[in-house]
Structures are given as C-alpha cells and as structure tokens.
C-alpha cells in the first residue's frame, strides 16, 4: 500500500527524520508513537503525499511520490482516509455535507449515497448532528465527524493523527473500537498517538505493530508497551 525506503525529511536543511523504511501491508494495524515534536505528523504527511521526502523513496499505491503530479496526489488521497489532530471542516456547511465532501469533490455524490451517508453518521454516533455546523460540535464529535469523512469513500488506508487527542477516555475507547472494526474489514490502519493507555487497550483487540520515532528515525518498539 505505502512503502518507505530509506526516507529522510529535513526542514530547511535540518534533518528531522532520517533513514526510515516501512511497508504498510493491506490489513495491517500500526501504532506510531514517540514524544511530541519527534515528527509523527511529518511522518504521516509523507505517507499521504502532503510532503515529499528530501531523501529516499516513498511509494504510494506503487507510484513514486516524487513522480506524482498534484492531480495524482489528489487521486491517491481518495484512497487514503486522513484524520487530523485538529480536524478542519468547511465551517459554512452542515456536518452531513462535510462528511460527504469527498464524494462531492470526486464527483461521486448521488442520491444513492444518502443511505450510505446515514449509515456512516449513525455508526459514528452523529445522526443527531446531521444539520449542525462544525463549529457547534464538541471535540469528540469533531473527531468522529473527521473519521466519518475519512471513511466515506471506503479508503484502503486510514491514517489518524492523535485521533483521541481532544476526547475523554470513554470516547477514545469508542474511536479505537471503530478503527479496529475497520481494520477487521480489511483496511490498513495507522494511528499516531502518544497515549500508551490507548495502545495497551488496542493490543487486547487486534494484533498491532508498534513503531516509535526516536533519534530521528523509525524503530520497532519493544514488547514493554
């Protein structure tokens, strides 16, 4: 799905990440951990083509990112659901339209999709907020709306950056269960988090691989977690 081969990334000459290699296989479940500022978000951005590596190779769906045009990247994003830490929406459109936005922009919006949308909204527990505007949502609701938006096109890969950052323990458990369920449906999942409790909770549900960013590179974390 997504392959990194000796990837390095530096901001204005300062190496942030170096020598990272990883293969995200279909159906895999990964956690990405590490201290704040270690480069977890940068790593995820490399995975969905928002940043191009300054060294090594990133391949997304068998295409080298450096050779991809902006439109190619846009097409790849339709197969990668991204949930950001601070999820942003189109604040002037109701939640349901925001969730359906990937359908709209890819020209797939049609009346047949309404059932699909309703089902997804119910699944993330936002049926009541159908017509609410995004600024009216709570932190947890925003996270779930962002997840629903990331899923509407039924992507092959889900990348979530601190999806439980703004929510209480109960809600984070619920989001985790949603992601585990998706993984069981065959989706590749990668969650960046520094919440070790969440990782422990996940390990009882799914065989997850844990990666850690330390010393500016990617390491397999031990079983101590």
């Amino acid at each position: 799905m997504i392959e990194l081969d000796n990837v390095a990334y530096s901001y204005s000459g300062d190496a942030l990440l170096t020598d990272m290699s990883l293969q995200l296989a279909p159906g895999a479940f990964h956690f990405l951990t590490g201290p704040s500022g270690a480069g977890k978000t940068t790593f995820l951005k490399l995975c969905y083509g928002a940043l191009k590596p300054t060294g090594g190779r990133v391949r997304i769906f068998d295409h080298d990112v450096t050779d991809m045009s902006r439109d190619d990247v846009a097409m790849a994003r339709r197969r990668i659901g991204v949930v950001h830490q601070d999820c942003q929406f189109l604040d002037h459109l109701p939640v349901a339209e925001n969730v359906a936005l990937p359908l709209t922009v890819s020209g797939q919006a049609s009346p047949d999709q309404v059932d699909n949308l309703n089902e997804l909204m119910a699944w993330v527990g936002l049926s009541e907020k159908y017509d609410a505007l995004p600024p009216e949502l709570s932190g947890g609701e925003r996270q779930r709306a962002a997840l629903a938006r990331a899923l509407i096109l039924s992507p092959d890969v889900i990348l979530a950056d601190e999806p439980t950052g703004n929510v209480d323990w109960e809600m984070s458990q619920r989001l985790l269960r949603l992601l585990v369920e998706l993984n069981k449906m065959g989706k590749t999942v990668m969650i960046a988090t520094h919440d070790l409790m969440l990782i422990r909770a996940a390990k009882s549900m799914v065989p997850a691989r844990i990666l850690r960013i330390a010393n500016r590179t990617l390491q397999a974390a031990g079983a101590d977690l």
């Binding site: 439109d71 846009a74 994003r77 991204v82 942003q88 189109l90 990937p102 922009v105 938006r149």
Partner: peptide, 16 residues
C-alpha cells in the same frame, strides 16, 4: 486557505 486545505485533504484536484 482553510477551505482549500480541507478540499486538498479529501482528494479534490486543483482543477476542481
């Protein structure tokens, strides 16, 4: 800018 960032994130092409 935020609208454009959101649209890019969900896979909108520049043309769109």
């Amino acid at each position: 800018a935020q609208v454009i960032a959101v649209l890019r994130l969900v896979g909108a092409t520049d043309g769109y």
